[in-house]
Amino acid sequence: MHLFYAPEGRLRLTMDNRSYVEVVLAWASPLTYPGKYLSFLDGKGKEIFMVTDPVVELAPEVWSVAQGELQRRYLNGVVHKVLSTKTEFGSTYWHVITDRGEKEFITQSLQENAQWLSPDYLLIIDVDGNRFEIPNISGLDEKSKQILSVTV
């Protein structure tokens, strides 16, 4: 199996004497099983194959290219620290530090847009549909936890 960009910018997969152009990588269950069930799709959106545990099942060079592509495709922010929140007129203004840097965003209707995936895992969707994950609330600093407990 060979995963590479050819021409530049277009992901290509060759395996079993076949070549697939414009390959798309997609997690089947990114929130419940992060890092598991990685699917490889062809240019028409048809699944070529799926690996349950890519770290174990993919060759290191393939996994390395796949990781780069996944980083580009999944633009969710993982929140490391909640600096502040402010609720006014039904909107909540967030100021956080994520794995992609510092970010301010706004949410409305927290009942629908702050989803508890588990007692310790919160997914927040802002007004534009951007997603921010807090996968391990108990691992956050005390101030962040205190702000979260008041906000959501």
Partner: peptide, 13 residues
């Protein structure tokens, strides 16, 4: 020449 150039990435905003 069939190259794909990613000019910019952006959030849904």
């Amino acid at each position: 020449s069939h190259e794909d150039i990613v000019a910019a990435s952006y959030s849904l905003t």
